[in-house]
């Protein structure tokens, strides 16, 4: 690990070589909006294009996504120029057209001074709820959980996450990591009593032997036992009562 210095909005800040510019900004309290990036998910980022910034390097300027742009010595970042604001505003307006009901996107839009989109909205048969097709859920499922129950389907405008043939997936362990990671809370997951519903499948939950609260799907316990060799009895109690 090599410590370097970069400049963000005129301020010199410490960074590690190749660290995400967005991470560096966040560490230094500089706000850059971002949706599809998760620091713990290697392959995440670059999809929503909301975190665009100006990168000045080797006498060249280009607009880059800060989430996956590597910090290098001599790099200067500008997060709040006319160009950045103009292009991001355009991106956010497009996202708002896609998911007019997402409060997260609406909030970003308001921040950028957008009251409503000028473009056609995805409504009626094309209603997409809140999904911006950023693919973070599928990356979490693959990289972090390791089951790859869902993937990004179709192409272009029809891109969406889903299970094969939109059927209840046998690979899914009901862990809900996808839903927790989703930046726009677009994945429907309901817990009712000892029953969890997600991706069209029902999972029965293991309840804590102390507090009696259902807290983890049986399928997830099976998966952890199988892949890590942990004792099954470990899951008798919820994290609060272990």
């Amino acid at each position: 690990m090599e410590n370097i210095k970069i400049v963000i909005d005129g301020k010199e800040v410490e960074a590690i070589r190749d660290q995400s510019v967005l991470d560096v900004a966040r560490e230094n309290g500089i706000y850059i909006p971002a949706l599809c990036y998760h620091p713990e998910v290697e392959a995440s980022g670059g999809s929503c294009r909301v975190c665009l910034v100006e990168a000045h390097q080797n006498g060249r300027m280009r607009l880059v996504t800060s989430c996956n742009y590597p910090a290098r010595e001599g790099l200067e970042i500008k997060t709040d120029t006319d160009l950045v604001r103009r292009i991001r505003k355009g991106v956010v307006e497009l996202l708002l057209s896609r998911v007019p009901d997402s409060d997260v996107i609406r909030e970003l839009a308001t921040r950028d001074g957008i009251e409503d989109t000028r473009f056609f909205k995805d409504e009626g048969d094309n209603y997409r709820y809140k999904c911006i097709a950023c693919s973070l859920c599928t990356l979490v499922c693959e990289e972090v959980v390791g089951v790859s129950a869902i993937s990004m389907l179709n192409r272009g405008y029809e891109k969406e996450p889903g299970t094969p043939y939109h059927k209840a997936s046998q690979a899914c362990i009901g862990c809900g990591a996808c839903a927790y990671a989703c930046p726009t809370q677009a994945i429907a997951m309901t817990d009712e009593g000892a029953l969890r519903k997600i991706w069209g499948r029902e999972f029965s939950m293991v309840s804590c032997s102390v507090c009696g609260k259902p807290y983890i799907p049986e399928a997830q316990v099976d998966w952890i036992v199988k892949t890590t060799g942990k004792e099954r009895s470990f899951f008798d109690k919820c994290p609060d009562h272990r």
């Binding site: 790859s148 129950a149 993937s151 389907l153 179709n154 299970t163 094969p164 690979a171």
Partner: peptide, 12 residues
């Protein structure tokens, strides 16, 4: 290879 990945290819 996870079924989801092969299915994604089929749709792409």
């Amino acid at each position: 290879v996870p079924a989801s990945k092969i299915y994604a290819m089929g749709t792409f």
